[in-house]
Amino acid sequence: MRAALKPLFDPLLRDNPVTVQILGICSALAVTTSMTTALTMSLALTAVLVASSAVISLIRRHIPAQIRLILQITIIAAMVIVADLILQAYAYAISQRLSIFVSLIVTNCIVLGRAEAFAMSHPVGPSILDALGNGAGYSAILMVIAFLRELLGFGTLFGATIFPTVADGGWYQPFGFMLLAPSAFMLLGLLVWALRSWRSEQVEPASTRVDREEALS
């Protein structure tokens, strides 16, 4: 039972796509100024990931090796367009705020990465679990960063006031830096550092690190 659920739970923390594999960080930086956009983006990515993994796993035995990547991308791109249209139809305001980042799910390394590394060589069931796990792992990191950025940058969570800001007659002076993209880099860096201090097995072996003297020269 534990082994069967491994693809679902592993990507949450032990092999998280964002903090361990450092994939998909472009969108993680771009949509995390508010919890609402981060949650919408997380759901869209998870839906695309699950659907594309399921389809690719279903036809995996009949995908010719030479055109493997292009078939995967075609399937993923179709799913992304459908997800984007659904968002535009049922959540127009949020889809305007996410602008191009929903369409850019197609270039998100997590989606193609899971298709190529997992769905191509596993049956449908485990592929869906793996997709759900990776989607949830991505979502968890996005939500943590969005929580900090929205709370510190606007004093709100999901748009509801938590810290009344000075502009509204409260006491909280918003930390404007949190709304700029570099703050997401720093939060992500701090998160990776915290996770690796806690679980030291996530630290890369010395051979993959940049040699200190080489970097300085």
Binding site: T74, A78, Q88
Partner: peptide, 28 residues
């Protein structure tokens, strides 16, 4: 098989995208 798979996958993708566009068109 390579050609057939390429055609079938593109056809299914095109079908999915165009049906979504048509079905959601009025709302959009």
């Amino acid at each position: 098989k390579t050609l057939t798979m390429a055609f079938l996958v593109s056809f299914a993708a095109a079908l999915a995208v165009s049906s979504a566009a048509v079905l959601l068109g009025p709302r959009l």
